[in-house]
Amino acid sequence: MANLLLLKRRIKAAGNVSKTTKAMQMIAVSKLKKAQDATFAGRPYVEKLSSISQNVLGKLNNESLHVYMKKNDSKNNLVIILAPDKGLCGGLITNLIRRIVSFNNENKNNLYLTVGKKVESTITNLGAELIASFKFGSTLPSFNMVLPIAQIIDEYFLSRKVGTVKIISTNFTSIFSQKPVITDLLPIDLSQIESSSFSLFEPLADELLPPLLRHYLEMTIYQHLLESYASEQGAKMVAMQNATDNALEIVQDLQLEYNKGRQEKITNEILDIGSAAFTFAYE
């Protein structure tokens, strides 16, 4: 009897879990839709911007290089990490952290800037220097998040405290696949630039470049934020779907066991009554 009550309680618990995870799944689905739209919509803009930037750069001679393109001899790296605030999104964070750790082992002298609470402690555990950390938030990242990050990048890169700026984030390829990637942000790589096809600049290329590159920098960071957000929601949706499926499976198994136990109890009672009646009949 006690055993049956216990089973009943466990069935209820698993049922509740499945309800919670199902709700979280639905939330992730609706957020994912928005995130996916924003991410895909942002891609053509960033691609165009990068092609324009490269085109302008091709027009410049070495003397008029912009500060964002100049290499300096500082051996420090500024690493910006974009990660979710909360867990419950499958292997996403584990993969990201693994990538960070391997990066930290390969490269020395790293300064970190994190967005998202989940990786903050990882950086401190690594014994690396954390210069700033921001919250990622649970809604679609707004462009305003980029400004303080860009400010810090400027402060460190322009004063030559760091030689390179990199971003570690997750790239949203599809709902089922999000890969951690490392992107070089600064200095802007000059090796891939083709020659320029523009014949006219208004104002002159030298004046046009600073706002263009600044905008390019901000938009690239923003696009990475969007990709990370979409990845988080995608991973969360899949993880919660799996959790719901597992919980329902447990409910089914327990229900089966409970039914068996109940049947056994009834059979035993009938046997009792039967044997008692049998004894009376012979007296």
Binding site: I52, S197, F198, L200, E202, P203, A205, L208
Partner: peptide, 19 residues
């Protein structure tokens, strides 16, 4: 509207980049 004033673009305009 550009930083150097309003411009009108017709076909076969020279390749241009402006703010």
């Amino acid at each position: 509207p550009t930083v150097t004033g309003e411009i009108t673009i017709l076909p076969n305009h020279v390749n241009l980049l402006t703010q």
